Amino acid sequence: MPAIAKHNDVLTVIIIFAVEPARQQELIDAIVEFLEVVKQQPGFVSSSIHKSIDGVRVMNYAQWQNQEAYQAFISNTQVQAKGEKLREFQIHEYHRYEVVVSLPDNATLKIAKGGLIHLAEFRVKPENQMRLVELEREYLPLGLQNPGLISGNFHRSLDGVHNINYGQWRSFADFEELVKDPKYKPLSEYWQGLAENEFHLYEVVHTEPSD
C-alpha cells in the first residue's frame, strides 16, 4: 500500500490532468493500463490514481526512489511510447515535490483506495515559496482541530512555483464543516498575497502496489 513519505525518502511526482467529465473514466483506465509498464521500471515505488468528485480532474500521485530513476523512466522513449494514449489529455499541473510539512505526528499516512482527499494547489513565485511553507506549518494545527481531518501534508515543488496540500479526510461532510465554521476562516486567508489557490475534492480509485 502506498504511503506519503513524511521524511522525504522518495521523490514525489504529482501529475494533475484537466479532463471533460465524460472522459474522466477513460483517462483513469488509460493511466491504469500504462501503470502495468511503469511499475516494472527500476526505481518505481508507487502510484495512486485520484478522481475529482466534480469530474474535471484526474491526479496521479507517484513516488520514485530518486530523481535519477525517474529521469531514466521519462527519458526511455520505448517506455513512454506505451503511454501514447495519455497525450490525448491535457496536463493541468506537473511537478516534482518534497514533503515539507506533515501533521499530526502520529497520523496514518497510507494512501488507500476509497480514501477521501482535499487537494489544495498553490501557485507561488519562487521567492515566496518558503514563506508559504512557514505559514502552512503555522496554520495546519488549526485545521486539525476538525476531527474529520486525518492528516495534512504540504508538498513543495522542487522548481519553486507550486505547493500542494494533500489533506486526508474521514468524510466530505467533515470537510464541508471546516468550510462553513467561522473559526476556520483564517485557513482561507493565510496565503493571500503570496499565492493563487485552487482546490478540488478527490477519491482514490486505484493504487499500485494495491492495498
Rank of each mutant, 00 (worst) to 15 (best):
V133G: 12
N128G: 08
N128F: 01
E121F: 12
L116Y: 01
H92R: 09
Y97Q: 07
P141R: 12
K85C: 03
G83Y: 08
K82V: 03
F122S: 09
V124I: 14
K113Y: 11
V99C: 02
L116W: 11
Y139E: 04
I117W: 05
P126C: 04
N106I: 10
A112M: 04
A120F: 00
E134G: 08
E88C: 01
Y139H: 03
I117M: 00
E136H: 10
K82Y: 09
E88Y: 08
R123S: 10
R131P: 13
H118T: 02
L119I: 09
M130V: 10
L132D: 08
Y97V: 04
T108E: 11
I117A: 00
Y97S: 01
I117C: 08
L86I: 10
E93Q: 13
E88V: 04
V124Q: 00
T108Y: 01
Y97I: 05
A120Y: 10
M130W: 13
E98T: 11
L86M: 07
Y139S: 01
V133W: 08
V100C: 07
Q90E: 14
L135G: 09
K82N: 00
Q80G: 00
L132I: 06
Q129S: 12
Q90D: 02
E136F: 05
Y97W: 04
K125H: 02
I91Y: 02
Q90A: 02
V99Y: 05
G115K: 11
H118A: 08
L140N: 09
E138M: 09
L135Q: 04
V79P: 03
Q78I: 03
H95C: 14
A81N: 05
E138S: 06
K125R: 04
Q80I: 14
L86V: 10
R123M: 03
R131K: 12
E136P: 12
D105W: 02
V101H: 04
L109P: 03
L103Y: 10
Q78K: 06
L132Q: 09
F122G: 06
R131V: 15
R137L: 03
T108C: 13
E136L: 14
A81D: 10
R87V: 06
Q129D: 02
L86R: 02
H118L: 07
Q129Y: 13
Y139T: 02
L109T: 06
L140F: 08
Y97C: 06
H92G: 07
E121Y: 02
R123G: 10
K113D: 12
V133H: 11
A120P: 15
R96W: 00
E138T: 06
E121M: 13
K82M: 07
R87G: 15
H95Q: 11
E121R: 05
G115N: 09
I91T: 14
R123C: 10
E136R: 08
L86S: 05
A112F: 03
V99P: 05
P104L: 15
E134L: 11
E136M: 13
A107L: 00
E88R: 00
E134Q: 12
Y94Q: 12
Y97K: 04
L119F: 09
N128A: 00
V99M: 12
N106G: 08
F122V: 00
F89P: 05
L109G: 11
E88F: 07
T108V: 15
L86N: 00
